[in-house]
Design a protein around this nucleic acid. Structure first.
Lengths: 208, 208, 208, 208
DNA sequence: GATGAATGAGGTTTCATTCAT
DNA sequence: CATGAATGAAACCTCATTCAT
């Protein structure tokens, strides 16, 4: 208890090499770890180590673990949304553009599923943080919803409940990512999977 | 004079006096807590308190938290499977029977989503435990798959990839449970939701 | 992060020897440490080590450090109060009984001063905890106040503001405990100190 | 053309422009915070923020927290001492001058009590720092002691132990600052309080 | 069967201090 | 002068697990 501070060597270490901004490095490490192991299981220390720095440095950039987590999710959702918007932008039939999105997601590693994260982190996050994540998620869905609405207005497809369609579409894409207990998938190739998903979805909502 | 201790009748108590066996009580409490807060966030003490006993008692019945969790999940999956099988058994058109399953799930409180649970508990469970949970999940899916296979054999519906259809079906039902950030759902009533889901699914897989 | 629990040797260690009840042992150690170093400076670990056990054991008995601190103070105040009551009870002139109390306190090691403790712990304690401590302190003062009131009623001393007198008395006794920077005290012996304090107090309140 | 950067006049700013020197600003903030929350509870960051600057700047002026604390206390004691000396200097009877000091202290917000500070900071300060604080405290007491000695020499009051009297006097004044748990004080007004304290003190040391 | 007592390990957060700019 | 960035150390508290009764 009685500890007189004796000249320790603390403080910022001497170094010169410029790298990526520290907070980006942290977010990157955090994203990977949180998505692999969930909110509770990943410690701030884990993130710090993965980012090549000290716990205290992580806390210098993000006041709490909950904030770091929220920003991680929000930033990821934003990236996904941007990717979707980009893939949906070309001047092609909606079917073809959706097909491209499907392929892209079947190839991506990270699932988009917020549900599980919400459950395990809910009690550790503030109401605002939960709202923030939820909104980012909805923005992501909205990017697809809007493609439907535009196509409806343009007369390309019949009128449907666009929000429900967007969620249904993502749900089906996630089915495509499912791996059974023996490790096999429903179809042989990504293309075949995408084809089947698109068929079910398209027929389901627009008939033939 | 015959003295009765604390007004308790002598002899073996009649079955009415009996409360549920302790391990069932634990499983019940555990199910609720795990589903509300996830694996990591729920402590064995939480479960014990919710079950009205001490931690040590829980450990008397379940050797580790991981085992308790696994049994919780497996037992839940089994219950869901049984429920599905039961609803699917009457001698009615497949569409009608599936419709009933849909209604039942839209009314149920617990989501069936294992994904989130797997992520956050994976590193705390043994390989066998993970397998056990996965198998229970697949059994659940299989109960639907088999309804498809039987209907195909009977010529009631055209041949499809039954496993993929089962997963797609559950995925769409889960969409029906989605609540947006403002608390609203896609449709007004459970019936309307079920109708829309069934329409998309049925058209998607069997055309008209 | 990925840490599979491998048969560690935890839990209650095997032992047989009966000693004092654990919570008493903790309170004792805590009292000493808190009084030597103050609330903030003493860590729960320090207390645990001083009490010959683990931090976790301390937390098993006292939910938070603030609670432990509060109980420590309250129990100490109670002990002091009891001591005072006891010394004040014999059938002797008030002057003589107060003299005895003075002697007792000049010989005691612990100061009765709550002020400093309040300041440094205030922001860490709940409103109720602060009240609890304050009340225990007032009870202590009241034990002296009552001696005055009784003596006034009995006509042994003239009427005075008993509460003010009690606080003044304790304040003067604390002066007697003061050690100057060179380590010396105002008077040579405890008796001489007590005599001077009592003279000033008695004359100050009752004239001759 | 002469360009003036950001509308600032050239040359050394007139004294009106000058704000208080930075180290004074720090000391001021530190004084307030330390007195409200004690040594341990106040972080250097708290002080920096309260002073409107960064932690590093505080460290530019004060090498360690312990040094800053010591200077804070010493400077405060010095200020109190000066105030006392000033109030005691007029050519009036000692009783009247002491009465003025009493009033001044009852109105002041900061208690003079070093005891609590010593306890909680002792183990963090060097021996010299503790000595420095103690000496500043004694200087403060000495300012009163000397008033007694002068009055004794002048034959205004009988011979007494002046050091003991000075401490007793301060102790009684502190009693006047005491607030009970219900927030009330012993007397209605500051004047009434001062009158009672002075009466007890004066009678106690000089009889009638 | 059931429980009270105990503990090792670890998790989140704070903080005094340092250094390069 | 002043500051942003970084860190080692430690503090509070939680928890899965064990053992004697």
């Amino acid at each position: 208890m009685i500890k007189q501070t004796k000249g320790r060597v603390l403080g910022r270490p001497k170094s010169k090499d410029k790298t990526a901004p520290t907070n980006e490095v942290i977010l990157q490490a955090a994203t990977r770890l949180f998505f692999e192991n969930g909110f509770q299981k990943v410690s701030v220390d884990d993130i710090a180590k993965a980012a090549g720095m000290t716990k205290a440095t992580v806390y210098y950039y993000f006041d709490t673990k909950a904030i770091l987590f929220t920003e991680t999710i929000v930033s990821l959702m934003r990236r996904i949304r941007e990717r979707i918007v980009q893939i949906l932008s070309p001047d092609k039939p909606l079917y073809d553009r959706l097909f491209d999105v499907t392929i892209a997601h079947l190839q991506a590693t990270t699932s988009i599923d917020l549900e599980g994260f919400m459950r395990e982190s809910r009690s550790s996050l503030s109401e605002e943080q939960i709202q923030e994540m939820r909104m980012a998620e909805e923005e992501m869905y909205k990017s697809i919803e809007e493609a439907f609405l535009t196509a409806i207005e343009a007369g390309e497809i019949p009128a449907i409940n666009a929000k429900f369609a967007a969620h249904s579409y993502i749900a089906l894409v996630k089915v495509g990512n499912y791996k059974q207990s023996d490790g096999t998938t429903f179809f042989q190739s990504v293309e075949e999977t995408a084809k089947n998903i698109m068929d079910v979805f398209w027929r389901g909502f627009f008939g033939k």
